[in-house]
Nucleic acid binder design. Structure first.
Lengths: 188, 188
DNA sequence: CAGATTACAAACCGACTGTCGGTCTATGAA
DNA sequence: TTCATAGACCGACAGTCGGTTTGTAATCTG
């Protein structure tokens, strides 16, 4: 079980890359399985053999994207020991990453609607939200009973500013605004 | 132009009410035009005479919902003269309203994906966001150059907490957390 | 009254998702 | 070496859905 498994994995990766691009360019609804088939040269049966359906394909794309984001943010934070500085660095890294239209459309816009809020939230917990909550907790600036909710609110706020930057907003102003926002929140 | 216009308006209202319920219950994607037709007793031609398409129907539903929300929040704020207190009252009213599943699903989850982020943002500007920005500006707590961005971030944060309350979170804890969040932001 | 406009009806079309029976080939045991 | 099995892949097909088109009856307008 080697050549077969490798072929399967390669096919899944190929489809995943193509689907990622298409979902990002056109959004979930306007991306047909048909065109994924066309661009990948795969047959219907083959695709449905690897992915249970269109939403399962989207979920795989989202998972891969979130994982990649998580890695990049971890890299941006690595080596920073001061909790507040690490939080700040992570947030700014995330805002830069969100300039990528792939991330905007897939992670921030379509994901909650396609996967449903609960499942979307569960996945965020394992990636961006989990990291942010840990960082925010480390600063000790937020009362423990509010940590979870404040982490959620902060992530939502940062996501929103990332979306605004991505849609033609001024990057430097947004960064300054987010830093001020963070400064106010962390002051106790 | 009286009897006919009235009949048309009545039909539109009927369809709007049914569509609102269906979109809220099942979400946009899982609500077929077919079932709207069935439940309203209308024919395809009639529906497409009044609404250009499924997305136009959704947009009408969203517009009506946002308008209703705006009215309720204005009522909750009416009479309060202190800007910070008014902001606080409006935000808390909004969190209570967002307990309604209709609002959750339609306004917070599906709207950005269905209408596209730009058009969704434009509509928010005319309703919840516009009100929040005005209230935040009146407090004078935020530097003018950050007002727009901070208003966006704050609204996103409040929306997120509203969603968490709606999905089984504890209401009183959330309210306390949001109040603390607001307090920190408004301190200058 | 006559023509235009509006509300509504129903057949129909193209596109899309997901299913199903089947083929081919690598793999591992006899 | 042989052969049964399982996984990769294929393509036809059914069912659903959004949207169009053609037609009809009622109402409004001049």
């Amino acid at each position: 079980m080697n050549l077969k498994a490798e072929r399967g994995a390669a096919t899944r990766d190929r489809v995943l890359a193509i689907a990622t691009r298409l979902f990002a360019d056109r959004g979930y609804d306007d991306t047909s399985i048909e065109v994924v088939l066309q661009e990948s040269g795969l047959s219907r049966g083959a695709l449905y053999h690897h992915y249970a359906g269109k939403d399962a394909l989207f979920e795989a794309v989202l998972e891969a994207t979130e994982s990649a984001i998580g890695g990049k943010i971890l890299a941006a934070v690595r080596g920073i020991t001061d909790p507040a500085a690490a939080l700040r660095a992570g947030v700014l890294a995330w805002i830069s990453l969100a300039g990528d239209p792939v991330i905007q459309r897939i992670v921030l816009i379509d994901a909650p609607a396609v996967m449903g809020w609960e499942r979307w939230r569960a996945m965020e917990e394992r990636y961006s939200f989990g990291m942010l909550k840990a960082a925010l907790g480390a600063t000790g600036a937020v009362p423990a009973e509010f940590l979870d909710l404040h982490a959620h609110m902060l992530l939502a706020a940062v996501n929103e500013s990332a979306l605004m930057v991505a849609r033609g907003g001024d990057h430097t102003t947004a960064v300054a605004a987010v830093e001020e926002f963070l400064r106010r929140l962390l002051r106790h």
